[in-house]
Design a protein around this nucleic acid. Structure first.
Lengths: 381, 381
DNA sequence: CGCCTTTCTTTGTCGCTGTCAATTAAGTCG
DNA sequence: CGACTTAATTGACAGCGACAAAGAAAGGCG
């Protein structure tokens, strides 16, 4: 799955005959998408002819991924293995579609300079995205409705362009290049300002019949809970989203705090902060258990601003930079306890994993969508 | 999708060339699985050569479906279109695996008599079923663990045998032969003793990584709600399952009632019954909204003992037979209101449909699984 | 050292599917 | 009747993959 394997191993993994592999591999070697490493495979000690390892020539085709928000554009240049070769951030001046298309075009031109191998673009946008047509049906943050973003960027750049919802793009990245490798059932939950989610079921990303899916943020946790922006009470997001947490702290007399301050207060034992973040953790855990119960998810990845961006959270609670938005570490035990309590039967076997998230990861997800498209459409049209 | 179509129509629907259809259809005509009706297709008024309609010869291959419970076996004889040709019910004397296999063998022999076209069997069992291997991993009601039911029945009867979880079997029947025809996203919710659910996502039935999926009965509705047998409080099933409803009525001083009595009381305006069933309806509606929010289900079918078995509920509330278990009609407005309230954005576009359910439908679902297996495996081995 | 065994890889042959582009079939309409 | 229209069939061909035999590249061993 990493792209390094002997032909025999490929035959075994794919269920095809060695002969079929030879024939499938040859043209790809010729165009340079694969190449043989000098390595002789399973090292020493074995009899017989040593296997020659073939691997993807990751630099043969480069892609650009862009995460589009109303404030900034995050762009990355990736190779076929979705390794980030270059990255750039651009503030958004004007978030009308034409202006964004213009800025994306410039950003792409910049990343593309000196890299003629760039062949496709992936764009990640929050909201209701129709990946098939490349249209952004509705994006609240950008205040867009039915924008043919894919077509426009493809026309301006001359590159094949894929558009996808941002969380689903992140899931795609994780599924092919992250912890989700080889899994056919995966849920990716983002915890931060909002509580988002993208789902992989039976090896396929769930898009939802009406463009809506994975709305774990609006799972009910407490009918007497705080009011959510969706109009209901007690949604996961109303309890565990940043705004909800700050609101409840303000009600307890702690106005004007940042989420990092709340986490710090909780770490130092302040009862209101401890209670509010415990409630938030239970809400997230309940949402995750609901996913596990309904879908039988094999693996659940939690990520988002609340997790932070460095691999291991600093457990000492000191030396943390000002404005740090991490609060998940405080919530985590409550998340897990609520999950274990509410997961039904063997649904509790789902593995929960934390994954720090940097902003480039969103862009990398977009790039992963572009790679996926390139790989699946290769050879056609 | 009903099996009646001209070759041209098939070509359009499948995306294949007319020529490919001709070649695909011919051998099936020869073995008698398809046949040409004399009809000339799109009736009058059109130019050109009239199309000849081909249709499945439903009687060419018959299947037997059996729903296995700890009390009774329900068996049906179906044709390839899953129309029920014969049905039989047998009380279960002894629910140990060997005894059940024995009874299934007898039941099959009875339905099979005089029908040499019978070629496969479908078995529907509640609990954790591994459809791939035909093993019943765990069935609480039958108190079975890891029973190789498929193998045993296949050996005894000499017929290809498919085993599936009962609710998923019902979904399969609905998906191919019921309201779900042509849909790629469907949720089937059963309301009665328990609250069950099976899900179709991206055209595939969700089995869950650990054999658990669709547990909408254990979605949280109210953290202060009644205790559920799963150990938590306020699950949908604890509030809207038959046992939960009766329990709450008993707490209000109405002990010893049946579910039909509760419904009748509610219809006559008795406040406790009205409240208890309204709570139940809201719980079901919340569960359904959760499915819609997470999966973007296109269509939701509600069925189960609570719906009753005749096509249209008798609205006058009189002349109902004693012991009628229908209570859903009282719950329905609350279900819909809760659904509309909690469905997020366009997830509310999901169509909700009621479907009366007779016990033979369960068996027919099992038959549908057998037909599905026959169709997909036809031509191999 | 040369031959044997083992394992990986390639290649020739074949069948299956499905496309493409005629060709044939069966109607309607003027 | 002949032009037109749509349906169905057919032959030629291409792609994919199975199967089996052959070739290649090692190590072991007499």
């Amino acid at each position: 799955m990493t792209g390094d394997a002997s032909r025999t191993a490929l035959a075994r993994d794919t269920g095809l005959t060695p002969g079929a592999i030879t024939r499938a591999v040859r043209p790809l070697l010729e165009v340079g998408l694969l190449h043989e490493t000098g390595d002789r495979a399973p090292a020493e000690g074995t009899l017989g002819r040593p296997a020659t390892v073939v691997t993807v020539q990751a630099e043969a085709h480069l892609v650009i991924g862009v995460k589009v928000t109303a404030d900034e554009l995050f762009g990355v240049l990736c190779d076929l293995r979705c390794r980030v070769l270059d990255e750039v951030t651009v503030p958004v001046r004007d978030h009308r579609p034409e202006a964004i298309v213009e800025q994306i075009t410039d950003l792409v031109a910049g990343l593309r300079a000196g890299h003629p191998e760039v062949g496709s673009i992936g764009l990640a946008v929050s909201g209701d995205v129709d990946a098939a047509s490349g249209h952004v049906a509705y994006s609240p943050f950008l205040t867009w409705r039915d924008v043919p973003l894919g077509e426009q960027v493809a026309e301006r750049t001359g590159l094949a362009t894929t558009v996808e919802n941002d969380v689903r793009a992140l899931l795609t990245g994780e599924r092919w290049y992250g912890v989700g490798r080889g899994l056919s059932s995966l849920a990716l939950v983002t915890v931060g300002t909002g509580i988002g989610c993208a789902l992989l079921v039976n090896g396929q990303v769930v898009h939802g019949s009406f463009g809506v899916a994975g709305e774990v943020g609006h799972v009910l946790v407490d009918p007497d809970g705080p009011l959510c922006h969706c109009g209901n009470r007690g949604c996961v997001e109303a309890i565990a989203g940043t705004a909800g947490i700050l609101e409840r702290m303000a009600q307890a007399g702690f106005g004007g705090l940042g989420i990092g301050d709340v986490a710090d207060l909780a770490r130092s034992g302040q009862p209101d902060a401890v209670r509010v973040l415990a409630d938030a953790g239970r809400a997230v855990g309940t949402g995750i258990a609901t996913i596990a119960n309904l879908l039988g998810a094999q693996h659940i990845v939690i990520t988002g601003e609340a997790i932070g961006s460095s691999p291991a959270p600093d457990d000492r609670g000191e030396g943390r930079p000002a404005g740090d938005e991490r609060d998940y570490d405080v919530m985590d035990p409550h998340v897990r306890r609520a999950f274990e309590q509410r997961a039904f039967g063997s649904a509790a076997s789902a593995a929960i994993e934390l994954r720090p998230l940097r902003f480039v990861d969103w862009a990398r997800g977009a790039a992963a969508c572009a790679v996926e498209d390139f790989v699946t459409h290769y050879g056609r049209s």
